[in-house]
């Protein structure tokens, strides 16, 4: 299978089990949603996959990576140097709050070209040209001028688009998006989600979308895995999870959505 295959991912921190055997497949060209309440281990799953679990954490299980060119039977077993070469190149991540995840002291152009020059060995000017194309791709207005600006000069939505541009710059195959829209307001959210969907389809990305917001899930995810207390309690297609959750917890989570469920499901119509 092309994409990520997470098997029995377990993470212990300070004697506490934060992840307790997470199994999720993240196939290429699809958005796999990871839903669940705060503290259920969604974010920790993302960080553990990319090898940045907090210091002192004990991680076990396997994470298989395959993109047709490169196959890694277990990311967790890689040496730090080898993992470093995959980060940003094959696996990229987008964070929740773009005002925090972009370096305030570096221009957008620098942040958008540094890793391309490092991973793809592009020249400064080639990287710059590609950076402008990327900004155009994620629809940041006047890309050339934007390259010279600094993060504090952009709005949150634009920053998140820039963060996506940075993430896809080296043409990664896997994108981990950790609550990419939570810090944005609803109208901006829709735009960013549309962008995420577009990138997934066009670049054949395997996207692991971490969010507590089932509304966001229902907008972009192909399949949804519901997490609770460090393990996946239910994994199914988006439609199935939203309309016909099998487990009690998934049911509860869906029912906690503020809007009325689709008609015909028999729920919330009384």
């Amino acid at each position: 299978m092309s994409g990520l295959d997470i098997r029995g991912l377990t993470l212990e921190l300070g004697g506490r089990r934060i992840l307790d055997g997470v199994d999720v497949e993240v196939p290429a060209g699809q958005v796999t949603g990871l839903a669940g309440e705060s503290g259920s281990g969604k974010t920790m799953t993302g960080l553990a996959v990319i090898g940045l679990a907090p210091a002192g954490a004990k991680v076990s299980g396997t994470v298989a990576y395959d993109d047709g060119e490169v196959r890694v039977p277990d990311l967790l077993a890689l040496r730090p140097g080898a993992m470093n070469r995959l980060r940003g190149r094959r696996i990229a991540m987008v964070f929740q709050d773009p005002t925090a995840s972009l370096q305030p002291m570096l221009s957008v152009g620098t942040q958008l070209t540094d890793h391309m020059r490092h991973h793809l060995h592009l020249s400064r000017s080639a990287a710059r040209t590609r950076a402008a194309e990327l900004l155009e791709r994620v629809r940041v207005p006047s890309p050339e001028a934007a390259l010279k600006r600094y993060p504090h000069q952009f709005s949150g939505g634009q920053l998140q688009r820039i963060a996506f541009a940075i993430a896809i710059a080296c043409e990664p195959k896997v994108l981990i998006a950790d609550e990419p829209t939570t810090a944005l307001d609803v109208t901006v959210q829709a735009g960013v989600l549309r962008l995420l969907r577009e990138l997934t389809d066009d670049l054949g990305l395997a996207v692991l979308l971490v969010t507590h917001d089932l509304g966001v899930m229902s907008a972009v995810a192909d399949t949804v895995a519901v997490m609770r207390n460090g393990s996946v309690v239910e994994h199914g297609s988006r439609f199935q999870i939203i309309t016909d959750p099998q487990t009690a917890y998934a049911k509860e989570l869906v029912e906690s959505l503020p809007h009325t469920p689709p008609p015909g499901t028999g729920e919330g119509e009384a």
Binding site: I50, L52, G81, N84, R85, L86, R87, G88, R89, A92, M93, F95, Q96, D97, A100, S101, L102, Q103, P104, L106, D114, H115, H118, H119, A163, I166
Partner: peptide, 22 residues
């Protein structure tokens, strides 16, 4: 502990690059 430092690591920056750049 800032997110942009973690984000820098995720772009493939090693410890010393991260220290110097971010």
């Amino acid at each position: 502990g800032q997110e942009y430092v973690v984000a820098g690591r995720l772009l493939g920056a090693g410890p010393f690059t991260s220290l110097r750049r971010d």
